[in-house]
């Protein structure tokens, strides 16, 4: 029941984040969705995810506010407003229809399938790795390839950010060096 309340709160906050005019209010409403998600993780018995989501959301909020604090939102309403909205809504309705069909194949909420993997991880996890926290055992021992890929993705994104946000291009630095000498 409390999960439903949290989900409805998340939906209202998401609508607010999409529809509000001011950019700063939009970003803060998005952070409200993230903090409600953190509470939902706690209810769903995932404390690792709750801690990580909380701190990641804080850092994300700081970065977004620094990026948007002095940018205005020009309010322009041009033609084809009706056409764009209607085509988007039709696309979303088709998406919802097919996902409703697919949802009948999913297991009932509260009774997960994948019993074999789950039993193996829960029963053998402590004996095989010695770690009590089974989530930690899974990400760093059983599925460490995933974590290696995650490290590679984070590394690539940092390289991309430093390439996008550098102050001078390589040519300008070269020209300055030759001029200085």
């Amino acid at each position: 029941m409390e999960l439903h309340i949290l989900l409805i709160f998340m939906i209202f906050a998401a609508i607010l984040a999409i529809e509000v005019k001011d950019l700063l209010s939009s970003v803060i409403a998005m952070a409200a969705v993230g903090f409600a998600l953190c509470l939902a993780f706690l209810i769903l018995k995932a404390p690792d995810l709750a801690i990580t989501q909380l701190v990641v959301e804080l850092l994300c909020l700081i970065i977004l506010i620094k990026a948007t604090i002095k940018k205005d939102l020009p309010l322009v309403i041009e033609g084809r407003w009706l056409f764009n909205t209607v085509s988007t809504l039709v696309f979303i309705i088709v998406f919802l229809f097919f996902s409703y069909i697919a949802m009948k194949e999913l297991p009932v909420f509260g009774n997960p399938t994948m019993g074999l993997v789950r039993r193996y991880l829960l029963e053998e996890g402590v004996n095989k790795t010695g770690a009590v926290n089974i989530v930690s055992a899974v990400i760093l021992d059983f599925r460490a390839y995933d974590t290696l890929g995650e490290v590679a993705v984070l590394f690539t994104s940092i390289i991309g950010i430093m390439a996008i946000l550098r102050r001078k291009g390589r040519k300008e630095i070269l020209e300055e060096d030759t001029n200085g000498k």
């Binding site: 404390p47 690792d48 709750a50 801690i51 990580t52 701190v55 990641v56 804080l58 850092l59 010695g130 770690a131 009590v132 926290n133 989530v135 930690s136 055992a137 990400i139 760093l140």
Partner: peptide, 18 residues
């Protein structure tokens, strides 16, 4: 304490960055 309690490298790293 990542292998004993909730938390781990990701959460602790983000807290240090914060």
């Amino acid at each position: 304490h990542g292998h004993l309690a909730p938390g781990g490298g990701f959460a602790g790293g983000v807290i240090i960055a914060l």
